[in-house]
Design a protein around this nucleic acid. Structure first.
Lengths: 344, 344
DNA sequence: CTGAAAGCGCTAACAA
DNA sequence: TTGTTAGCGCTTTCAG
């Protein structure tokens, strides 16, 4: 005997129904529902009771239609064409989602997930917001030259980017001080006395990867190591293995390795082990990200952590500011941290 | 000079505007927009042109208000209180999201992410759908006695569950044949000649965990190993370490281990290594899930795979069936697969 | 095949 | 403080 469950016959109750049941006007019910203070306590009580007995719940579409707000933001994951599956297996994504969710829910808002991995998908993401399905967009862009930020800016949609845009686009963003993080790694290696240092860098078209590489090289130079052999990977474990094998062939007496992410570091670890090098005794190894694999590896990886959840929360906060009228662009760069474990 | 970008002054164009520009009625424009076939080609052309020049895009709220459909489904991640962060770091979640997304996007639909980790959050998830923010719900329930499924069923909301409900609830679901998967692990161990077999089970209040344990025990019995020592973990690496240490104390000559998930298997691996046991030579080890850590471990983990993406896709398909009127409950149980790598 | 008009459920002036 | 009323933008009979 619950009113909540709609009998096949009975439509779901509307403001009108509540008004009738309470013997007041729709406007008054609306006021009560929206917490207006200018309502007679007695009426408020009547209405509250009527809401209860009718099982009334406001209709979101009707509200949106009149006040233009949806309470939804699009969380757009940008990926190069077809990289979808790869992307979602990456815990990085989950951490972002978690941070976004935490911030939104305190405002009774919700994220709608979208994947923008093709021209069509990108356009659909833009249209989704243009149709008024969402108030704004959170853009997670992992690859360079991504047209996504431009698309949203041109459409005049409030949006915030996770990661600095590869090409200049007038958009707010949050990012990590990648170079500073790499410098932390360099210092760690130098402090341990490593002199024959090599590095596994990320894709050359990714700003974050280049920042890490440049930051590492600069820091090593400061520490008296002018040249660092570089091999490129693409942030996967396999590519890390290949790069490490290459490096070992070129610099057999390497005593320190900096991998631009943990996955590649894990690959390097495997190759080092196969070649009989002990980590950290023969060669010290530092990763980047402080992801799950870093914690699980044997030896546990010394690495650079990024506060992904916090960054995601901040990104969300900035978007909400824009939604409530803030017009000037904001960019926040977070500081990474050295996490010392066993590998260096 | 793009019409798309709304000048501060100009409102976004409506059907009315397009109708005026094309010299036809709103109804005709609506027909064209919705692909009605009963429209004169010439008019259609007029309208199409007008849509282009005005930069018209339909308003979702207005549509929803009249036809009752949102094109959105809620993707509700259920967690015990406060387990949010833990949950989103788990790639399992990302894989589900990926599968859901893939199926939805082909229907021009989208998932809205919700976390139901408290009584209040659960109620909000239900209300979200009741307000007409979504057409139905996808429920990912990871813990036993979860009140979530019941809540949705009682509210009369179309919903499908990922994982069999712990208590009987009339709801459609997809699940894995956990017992069969565990039997695969048992057979692998038995085939290698393991006789002193132990297992690290999951939480006792989780149906999936119990199914795996029971399936494993039954299969070992069939293979002539009537007794298997059991230690309980909670699916984390740490708990796997503790359980393995325990087991090693009780059964020092163990030659085979089945861990109910990969994370615990990785923990076991570490302890085994510390105790000087070589894997797989001294003791064979099988995990469950075929997650990233299984691929990254050294030695690489032999494990049982679940087709998470496929399951998520199917779950979504079932929900869409319900949304288009299918009324009878559906449950689909997927078969796991043995993935042979190095650890057994 | 096309147009006129009646809502969908709600909010926000504006009056009373 | 409350009620009346005019839309929000769209779909869908129902006539023509």
């Amino acid at each position: 005997m619950r009113e909540i469950r709609a009998d096949a016959s009975r439509r779901t109750p509307t403001l009108e129904d509540v008004a009738k049941a309470a013997g007041v006007s729709r406007a008054t019910v609306s006021r009560v529902v929206n917490g207006s203070t200018t309502v007679d306590p007695r009426m408020r009580h009547q209405v509250t009771k009527a809401i209860e007995t009718t099982g009334y719940i406001p209709n979101a579409a009707a509200r949106t239609l009149v006040n233009g707000r949806t309470g939804t933001v699009a969380l757009v994951i940008s990926g190069s064409d077809g990289s979808a599956d790869q992307l979602f297996r990456d815990p990085f994504f989950g951490r972002i989602a978690g941070g976004v969710l935490r911030h939104l829910r305190s405002r009774s808002m919700h994220p709608t997930l979208m994947l923008a991995d093709s021209g069509q998908a990108r356009q659909e993401a833009v249209d989704f917001v243009r149709r008024g399905n969402a108030d704004g967009a959170l853009l997670v862009s992992t690859h360079a030259g991504d047209p996504l930020p431009r698309l949203f800016v041109d459409a005049g949609i409030p949006a915030v980017l996770f990661a600095r845009p590869a090409v200049p686009v007038p958009i707010s963003f949050v990012d990590l001080a990648h170079a500073a993080g790499a410098a932390l790694a360099a210092d760690r290696l130098a402090d341990r006395g490593c002199r024959r240092v090599v590095t596994i860098a990320g894709p050359a078209d990714l700003p974050a990867a280049n920042d890490r590489l440049a930051g590492f090289q600069r820091a090593m130079e400061r520490r008296g190591v002018p040249y660092v052999e570089v091999a490129r990977g693409n942030f996967t474990t396999d590519s890390g293995e290949r790069a490490m094998a290459e490096l070992l062939a070129t610099v057999p007496d390497a005593d320190g390795v900096f991998a631009a992410n943990d996955l590649m570091a894990v690959g390097a670890l495997r190759v080092l082990h196969e070649h009989g090098r002990s980590v950290p005794d023969d060669v010290a190894l530092v990763g980047f990200d402080d992801s799950e694999p870093a914690r699980l590896a044997r030896p546990r990886l010394t690495t650079i952590s990024q506060p992904v959840e916090q960054m995601a929360e901040r990104m969300t906060a900035i978007l909400l500011d824009h939604l409530s009228g803030a017009t000037e662009l904001t960019s926040v760069v977070f500081d990474p941290e050295l996490i010392v474990r066993e590998s260096a």
